[in-house]
Design a protein around this nucleic acid. Structure first.
Lengths: 121, 121
DNA sequence: GCAATATCTCAATCATCATTGAAACGTAGT
DNA sequence: ACTACGTTTCAATGATGATTGAGATATTGC
């Protein structure tokens, strides 16, 4: 479960034009992800600057990376995104959990696809 | 529909410890909201500093205010919060809208209660 | 092993944000 | 009108973040 400190870091990471563009590009790209060089082109930042932002996003738990040949592939951390949204909604419908709970679950099912053969193919 | 610029401003506003605490307190409090002085006590910041953060959140479209006597009551802007989450999810399940769409709608129903006699009473 | 590609680390500069205290503004009660 | 209360504005300081360029690291193909 995400705590306040993590949530602040995640929101701050998203509160930057280039980083939000990066995350959106990765969410759109799906689990296959994108190479750093491709991202740099799509977002429009220098390689050095991109690296800084990727590190920031990775540290915030919003993206992950894997090496493929001489490229490094980045992809969205759907569980991190889901957890962040759930944190924002946690105390929302305090007195009426029957309203919020299904929405949160549906959201989690959308963003996280751990074992299912479904989304983001 | 929220655009990138608004979303960046909103995320940046939430990416600050005290501001996130303020929003969470207001979301928990519901549409009745909280007076600025009460908020200052709950969040633990000086009145001057609170005013700065409230202005920031208001400008980001995440909270709203109304005067009541000599107090000013702040409350969460549920439509702004909902729009922000929808922006983050917009391109998520691009190829499978039947997965994301219901989640987003459920979320909107949870956060926004325009005419219903339901939530946040 | 050598050259080329892809990406990262480091140090420095510039801009932006958070916080504080003092003073001003509006409102309520007498 | 005057005093008290709640909240905001203003100017200044200190801290944090974004961006840049040069150099370092890792991987591939010859």
């Amino acid at each position: 479960m995400m705590d306040q400190r993590q949530a602040v870091a995640a929101f701050a990471a998203l509160g930057q034009e280039h980083r939000l563009s990066i995350v959106r590009a990765l969410v759109t790209a799906g689990p296959d992800g994108l190479a750093a060089g491709v991202l740099a082109g799509e977002v429009g930042v220098s390689g050095t600057n991109l690296s800084f932002h990727l590190k920031e996003l990775s540290h915030a738990g919003l993206i992950q990376s894997r090496r493929d040949g001489r490229s490094i592939i980045y992809s969205a951390a759907y569980d991190g995104l889901s957890g962040l949204i759930q944190f924002l909604m946690r105390d929302c419908c305090q007195g009426r959990p029957e309203v919020c709970a299904p929405a949160v679950e549906a959201l989690a099912a959308c963003l996280c696809t751990p074992t299912g053969d479904t989304v983001h193919a």
